[in-house]
Amino acid sequence: MNETLQRWLTLSREELDDIYRKAKPGSIPQGDTQGTAILAGGPFPRLFATVARLLAWQGKVFDLFKPNFDSGVLVNKISPAGINLIAAKVYRDHSWMDGKDTIVIDYSKTSLFARQIRDEIREVEPGLYLGKVWWGNHRILDFALETNT
């Protein structure tokens, strides 16, 4: 696990929000990413991240559209087997957190199960993204994505 990501697991929600606000969107990831759920400020954050990865969510697989690779689709890797399920549209838009540019992962038109969910990600360092999960208008969780670069 990336050293920066290890540090994120020790931070409060407010500290993670500050990191997110300072980051630029960066490039939209392409291909397979490894995900880490972050329960900021919660009890046993490393244990939560490990259990979530083993039993529920391992990351996302992005497929971007040409010509400029500024939008596309993705699927989440779900279950202990990492089955590709729960599709979303990916595009650039304004963040619900601070109104600045971000990468949006939008499930509203692609998933009956997750239609209330919207993720936002920004690239904090090359290949490492910090994400925010919204359920309706409420933020519920943070997460990280690591690319294979």
Rank of each mutant, 00 (worst) to 15 (best):
D63G: 03
I103A: 05
P45H: 02
V51S: 03
L54A: 07
K109H: 11
L112Y: 04
M97R: 15
A56K: 09
H94V: 09
E123P: 09
V124F: 02
I86Y: 13
G99F: 01
A144H: 08
L130S: 05
I117D: 00
I140A: 08
R53P: 07
L55T: 15
A144F: 06
S95M: 01
S71C: 08
K89E: 11
A52D: 12
F113S: 14
V51E: 01
A81N: 13
R92D: 14
G42R: 07
S108N: 00
K60C: 13
G41T: 04
L55M: 11
I103T: 12
R46E: 15
T110S: 15
A40V: 01
L145R: 09
Q58D: 05
A81Y: 14
E146P: 02
H94Q: 11
A49Q: 02
P126L: 02
P80G: 09
R139F: 05
L47S: 10
P80H: 06
H138C: 04
Q116D: 10
D63E: 11
W134Q: 05
F44T: 12
H138F: 04
R92Q: 15
A49D: 09
L141P: 02
L47H: 11
F44G: 04
G131W: 11
S108Q: 09
S79P: 02
H94R: 14
G41C: 09
D119R: 03
H94G: 10
L64I: 04
F143C: 11
K77F: 06
G131V: 04
G59K: 05
A81H: 08
N137R: 15
R122K: 15
S111C: 08
D70K: 13
R139N: 10
L145P: 07
K100M: 00
I117A: 08
S95Q: 06
A40K: 03
A40L: 03
W135G: 11
W135Y: 14
R122D: 12
I140W: 01
V75T: 13
